[in-house]
Amino acid sequence: MVKACSPEFLLNHSLRSYAFGIAMAHKVKSKIDKEVFFLGSVMHDLGLTEKCMGTETFEVEGAREARAFCIHQGIEVDKADLIHEMVALHNSVGIAHKCDPEIALLHYGAGADIAGLWSYDLNKRTVEEVLAEYSDEGFKAGMIRLIEEQIAQKPNSYMATMVELGFLEKAAKAKW
């Protein structure tokens, strides 16, 4: 489903976010549910796709779609609920890292990929291997465009505040 509705750069970002999150598992103290972590990671930006465009912030739109998809596929409701929270909170600075370990790791992994955050927690070779496996495919330009479109449509969204604080500049200057 994600592959069908996402441009390649967004799918690869989601896969890199998963890989970087796994590589930072040392940052959380609890065991993670790897299936839940994978599903939440892969679906975390569904709200940026045409399939999930709605009137609410992209994190909420994507979270609803991810939960509904998981339940339709037979995933247990408690796991689908956690995936919902992963998607809804993945970029919630000051909150996500205090939540369930899957939420925290997605926050770390996506932040590392899009803005180079926590790059000091990643082995250089790991980064090189992940980037070789899941290429950029115009990721920075594409993601900046999607975020700008979201802000134009939803000027009071959480992401609008993040952009005002310099998020897009940070993303544009990221190492990879």
Rank of each mutant, 00 (worst) to 15 (best):
G62F: 06
A63S: 07
A63W: 03
A63T: 08
A63H: 06
R64Y: 13
E65Q: 04
A66L: 04
A66V: 07
A66W: 01
R67D: 00
R67A: 06
A68E: 14
A68V: 04
A68S: 10
F69R: 06
F69N: 00
F69E: 05
C70V: 05
C70S: 09
C70H: 00
C70F: 02
C70E: 02
C70R: 00
I71R: 12
I71T: 12
I71N: 05
H72S: 15
H72K: 15
H72Y: 09
H72W: 08
H72V: 02
H72Q: 14
H72A: 13
Q73G: 05
G74E: 07
G74Y: 03
I75M: 13
I75Y: 09
I75G: 00
I75E: 01
V77P: 00
V77E: 13
V77S: 09
V77D: 07
V77L: 14
D78E: 15
D78K: 15
D78L: 10
D78I: 04
K79E: 08
K79G: 03
A80T: 01
A80K: 03
A80I: 03
A80M: 06
A80E: 03
D81F: 04
D81I: 08
D81H: 11
L82F: 10
L82S: 07
I83S: 01
I83Q: 03
I83F: 08
H84K: 11
H84I: 03
H84A: 02
H84T: 03
H84F: 15
H84E: 14
E85D: 14
E85A: 09
E85I: 02
E85S: 13
E85H: 14
M86L: 11
M86Y: 05
M86S: 03
M86R: 02
V87Y: 01
V87K: 01
V87W: 01
V87G: 02
A88Q: 07
A88I: 01
L89A: 10
H90Q: 14
N91R: 12
N91F: 07
N91H: 15
N91Q: 11
S92R: 13
S92V: 09
S92Y: 13
S92D: 11
V93S: 09
V93T: 14
V93F: 13
V93N: 05
V93L: 08
G94M: 11
I95E: 10
I95N: 06
I95F: 09
H97I: 08
H97R: 15
H97K: 14
H97Y: 12
